[in-house]
Structures are given as C-alpha cells and as structure tokens.
Design a protein around this nucleic acid. Structure first.
Length: 409
DNA sequence: AAGCAAAGCTCTGCCACATATCGGC
DNA sequence: CCGCCGATATGTGGCAGAGCTTTGC
C-alpha cells in the first residue's frame, strides 16, 4: 500500500500548488486512487495498477483540474473539466451562467484504461455511479458506491433485476412524434408510448448521455445536493422557490416535479401492466386505461415476472421479439449483457431517487394559501369571512352582556 | 365460492387571489 | 431594445365527496 502524504506544501501560502505524485514525487499527480488513498501520476498509476488483478480493480478518479489537489467529484460538461466539490461550488456559484452548467458526479477509472475523465464504464466490478444512489461514502470527499452499498444492491438484485429487465425493450427507439398528439394527458400518452416501443421506457430507464439529457442532469443536480456537496441553487427573479431540505437544512430539490412526472409515468406503466385494477386513480378514464391494459397484454410487452405469474398457457415469444397485435413478431436487437447491466443500474438509480414529496414552486403562494381564509377547506373571499366573523363576533357580543359595543371613529 | 355491507383508503375537484407570463404599445 | 400596462394563466392548501379496496360475515 502506498502511504498518503501531503506533498507540494499545505500551508496557506502554497495552497494552490499542484500535488505531486505520491509514488515518484516528481510529477504532478493526475489520478487519485481510493483504495490506496494515494495521488498518482499517470505513469505510476499505470505501473501500480497494472501490476496485478487486485490492484487493477482499485477505484480511481481524476484529480481536480482546478486546484489539482483534491479528487474530482464532479465533471462539468460545459467546462469539460473534472472538479472537486470545493472548486465545483466555487466556480459554479460565481454567476448564474456558470451555475447552469451541467455537472455530473465523477465516475471512477476502471482497470488500466486511461481515457477522458467522462468515460462511463458499464459492467464489471469497476462500475461506479457516484453520488446518485444516496449510498455513497462521504469520507475523503468521495461519492461512490462502497462495497457495502454493492452488497445492499445485490440483496435487492433479483427483485430489481426482474423488474428492471421487464423494461429493457428497444435500445433507444426513435422519438415518437405523435407524443403530443395523442392526448394532453401525460399518463395516457406515456402508456401509449411505452406500449409501442416509444421513448418513455427510456425516459425512465435510459439516463445515459448525461450531457444531452437535461432531465437527467437536473436529477443529478438534485443528487449532488442530496449528498454532502451543496451546489448552490438560486432562483432568478419571481417567486422564490422553497427548497426542499434535507436533515441538515441543505436545499435539495428544485426539479422534483419532473421526477414526480417520471415517477407517475413509471407507476402508471406499472399499474397498467398489472392489469390496471385502479383505473380511475391513474388520472385517465377507466375505459382508456382498460383498453391500454388489454393492449399491453396483446402486445406481450409484459414483465417477465408478470408473465410467469399470470400466463403460463401462452407460449412465450421468442426472446428478442415483440409480438404486436397477436402474432407478428418483430425482431428487436438483443441487449448485450453490459447494456443490460447498464440499464438495470440506471433503472435502480432512478428508482432510488424517486421523490414523492410535493414540490412547492412558489413560496409566496404557499404562504398566501396558508394564511388565506377557508370555509370547509375551500378558499373563501375575505369579505365573506370577515363578515361571518363580524357577525359571529357581534352575536357573541350581543349575548354577552358584559361587553358593550364601542363606536369607532 | 359468491354476494353483500361496512370500514378504510385514495384520489379529485373546488375555492380566492397573489403572482407569473405573455402580447401589445 | 427596454419598460410599462392590461389580460390571462398559474399555483397554492384543506376539505368533502366519490370511488375503489379490503375485511368480515
């Protein structure tokens, strides 16, 4: 094991010196090895971590490109830079523009590969999705899945995998142009989309392409805030947004609405798949959801578990095909094990990050609503209530002889 | 097993009004 | 391009009631 030392000076005056490699002590470090708690240059990293299978599995991240002194915690897509939590907060809280940069939690470097920091590795034991699961370790500033977290996941693996696998349909199908035309009701639309290989499955599953998916970035911003890294969020003008706070009073979520939509999409889809016995609660007419449910069975895009439980009499379609409208199988590309694992992981991530709390977008409106007079829960006109109160008050005064009305001027 | 009633649960609509948003000037 | 103004849209919380599910018989 390498011994971690603070080289490069740590006194206040030299705080911005780049840290040198803990191994050779001659070159600026570029990589931080979590297992060794060591800062290494590329050469030493390659040498050490190519030495054995065990060391090759060490989880490593790039060193912050700003301070060059701390492990990177986030990757800023706009700046194309890996930043530690501190630098990230500093840089991206400097101005509104910077604040809007899309940042994603840094991902560890797998094996002995040396590519750009944003490489997303899928599959294998080096896969790590930082800061998004809520199970990351927070010591030494890292957000990463620990072995414990992995174990936890493994415990849920069978159940989750079955569920996740049921959504592993087409590989990022073409966007459904009819999405907006089907119905204004999102739930309904999404059911259609999902049933017909539209994108909505990916809406839930496919978080990939971090930079291109603002929704996902939003979620990652949320995740960042859920973790110890507080990335300041502020509203620019208008009603102030009430931040949802964690236990430490840190603002957490500003995009929960999107997430809730995702959740409802998923929930609705699930319910639809589960023969939809609660039609009217899903926000669309019972007849519609019923028909959707029927179609879902006809299409045979049914979770495997559901298939096992409900329909053993029907022969299962050949793996990798979908039967549309009973009996016309379409060949769909089979997912590779890595793709599958990636999607399962993404699915689990989203599942864990579901937020069911109500999002308050406008604090002022909430405040007004709370102070607004009500009659049986409904908002009431102030005049009516005041009149009512006045009447009650006057009645009470009239019946109570101990009080007398004092004229006001 | 089927049918029924009661209890419990979940969801939706309603209300007023401050504020956000939009288009025109 | 900017600011102002008016019209319209939006969002907010608590309650009642409808409808669904569960339970017991």
């Amino acid at each position: 094991m390498l011994k971690k030392e603070n080289s490069g000076g740590l006194d206040g005056s030299s705080n911005y010196w780049a840290r040198v490699c803990d191994s050779c002590r001659s070159v600026t470090c570029t990589i931080y090895c979590q297992a060794d708690s060591a800062y290494l240059c590329a050469d030493c990293d390659a040498r050490i971590h190519a030495a054995s299978l065990v060391t090759s599995r060490h989880k490593r991240v790039w060193v912050c490109e700003a301070c060059e002194r701390a492990p990177a915690a986030f990757l800023c897509k706009a700046d194309a830079a890996s930043l530690c939590a501190s630098c990230d907060a500093d840089i991206h809280s400097a101005n509104p523009l910077a604040h809007r940069h899309h940042r994603i939690p840094i991902i560890t470097i797998p094996g002995t590969l040396y590519g750009p920091p944003a490489v997303e590795t899928v599959g294998g034991d080096s896969m790590m999705i930082s800061g998004s699961t809520g199970e990351g370790t927070e010591d030494d500033g890292f957000l990463s899945l620990t072995q414990d977290a992995d174990d936890t996941i493994i415990d849920e693996e069978d159940e989750d995998e079955d569920e996740a696998a049921s959504w592993l349909l087409l590989n990022h199908p073409v966007k459904n142009n009819n999405k907006n035309n089907v119905n204004n009701n999102n739930n309904q639309t999404n059911n259609y989309d999902m049933l017909f290989g539209g994108e909505v499955v990916d809406d839930y599953l496919d978080l990939a392409e971090y930079g291109g998916d603002s929704q996902f970035n939003d979620q990652y911003n949320v995740n960042q805030q859920q973790q110890q890294y507080f990335v300041p969020q502020m509203s620019y003008g208008g009603d102030s947004v009430v931040p949802v706070q964690d236990g430490q009073g840190k603002p957490l979520i500003f995009y929960q609405q999107q997430q809730q939509q995702q959740q409802s999409h998923h929930q609705n889809f699930q319910l639809g798949m589960e023969y939809d016995n609660s039609n009217t609660r899903l926000g669309y007419p019972a007849s519609m959801s019923h028909s959707v449910s029927v179609v879902s069975m006809d299409v045979s895009v049914v979770p495997e578990s559901a298939l096992c439980e409900t329909s053993n009499s029907q022969p299962r379609p050949q793996k990798g095909t979908i039967e549309l409208f009973s009996g016309h199988p379409i060949q769909i590309p089979l997912l590779t094990p890595m793709d599958r694992e990636a999607r399962v992981l993404r699915y689990r991530e989203k599942k864990k990050n579901r937020k069911f709390e109500k999002t308050i977008r406008y604090a002022s409106r909430k405040a007004y609503a709370e102070t607004r007079p009500r009659i049986k829960g409904r908002f009431a006109k102030r005049t009516d209530v005041e009149a009512e109160v006045d009447q009650m008050f006057s009645t009470q005064l009239m019946t109570d002889s101990s009080y007398r009305i004092v004229p006001s001027f």
